[in-house]
Design a protein around this nucleic acid. Sequence first.
DNA 1: CAACGTTACTTTATGGCGTAAGGAGATGCA
DNA 2: TGCATCTCCTTACGCCATAAAGTAACGTTG
Lengths: 263, 263
Amino acid sequence: MVIYAGQGDPRWSMDVMWGNRVSNLRPGPKPGLSVELIIDAAVGVADIDGMAGLSMRAVGEKLGRTAMSLYTYVPTKGDLVDLMYDRVLGELPTHYEPRLGWRGSVTSWAEDHLEFHLRHPWTLQVSQARPVLGPNEFAALDTASGILHETGLRPPVLRGILGVVLHYVRGAARTEAEARAAAEETGVSDEDWWHSRSPLLVEVAPDFADRFPMAIRMEQDKPAPPEDPKKPYLESAMAESFAMGLEVILDGIEATMEKAKAG
Amino acid sequence: MVIYAGQGDPRWSMDVMWGNRVSNLRPGPKPGLSVELIIDAAVGVADIDGMAGLSMRAVGEKLGRTAMSLYTYVPTKGDLVDLMYDRVLGELPTHYEPRLGWRGSVTSWAEDHLEFHLRHPWTLQVSQARPVLGPNEFAALDTASGILHETGLRPPVLRGILGVVLHYVRGAARTEAEARAAAEETGVSDEDWWHSRSPLLVEVAPDFADRFPMAIRMEQDKPAPPEDPKKPYLESAMAESFAMGLEVILDGIEATMEKAKAG
DNA sequence: CAACGTTACTTTATGGCGTAAGGAGATGCA
DNA sequence: TGCATCTCCTTACGCCATAAAGTAACGTTG
């Protein structure tokens, strides 16, 4: 597994993302493709086959070209992933009704991000260490910042809070995306998988209940597994757990606000 | 990037992890290696070169063998990763002093996990969808459950809380691990990287300040970058941000406890 | 002790990957 | 009409996991 980050000329990808491309007419055959077309095709491949299935050959095939022909338009695969990332980031809303209040806005924001990552699970594989510096990435940061500033807290605290919410949403999305991928790749549902493993566990560790009593207690009162796997995540039984965790975080933010007011 | 999950005979890996191996003497040459030796070598490779650098060739080379010779001991690379994962999970503490209280214990637990993931960054790439079902994985779950049960909250709420804390710790570790990997791979520090990008950003998006005012506000009062990169993360300036986020979560847990008491 | 079956380990091969290198053919301009 | 420049192709290299088959070492059995 590789986490991609463009390592070509940084100037090139930034010009593409910010729309500073010059398309002066030049000799030679007319371009049959374009960077935009390639980004679209690549996103299509990654959405279906994941980051692991995203190969230059696959993208080329989707466009009726060879893998190598893409290098006429894009310097490296890493740069292409950067462009894909900023492209889909544009799907995120950039405005939340102020009358929702910060609590309602953060909730909607978290749900929108969750759905976004489930629609494009490969985005969870893009390294966050060195940002892409594209317009949509900054727009997303600007939106989140705007919501959080409504709490009246100071920037250093807000950065901590943004980290908590972001890590939580991405983590939840990752877990769900991994579960879906596992189910599709193996053709075995989570429920069937557990049904096949638990007898093995009993056989291999007969003293299980004595060794891990707390782990067993933690499993009490589990909700029913999702009825229809095609139903959107946010309407499924598992979304309850997501909402509960988010509620804890929101309460934490509120407590922080009260502390700031008091202190 | 591929997220590994063993897909060989599940029985085999479980027998190895739970120590149910039979080593009856059989004809043929004496085994020069063992599953344990291979796991150790593989962990060594992954700790240094990451999941991307973990190849059967690399592990074999470390043991003075070819890649193929490993398949005498291990059915697939995926199974090997499963074993590696449960192996290193054994490094996590399984006991926290009750006198620390749930708040102190959760804090220590989070710090231990953070350090663990920074010591073995490749563990962040192991899919959490279908657990390995090894003894150390269950021990870790048991420990976390034990701490959280001190809050007196019911299991469904505790699962939500565990998710929040786990996602937060893993997310923070991932961000830090990605930053370190990027610095090492490119030979450019985060600071130098920003110094080279920001002029480009100004050039390509002169209206930046007008378009993303909230994003800029969010950057105010940034702490100084880490002085010595070799210093342990928890003693660095960035750890402040980690502690702040954790504090918000802990306050959220406390608010949840109060609500439960009241309701 | 010789033969045999089992095992450890090797070499070779298959089909994937990103991408370097070089060549063929199309096109706009001098 | 060249010629420079461009698109797109084929080929090739060095990686990857692992299937297949061969060699040699060893315990057991006749």
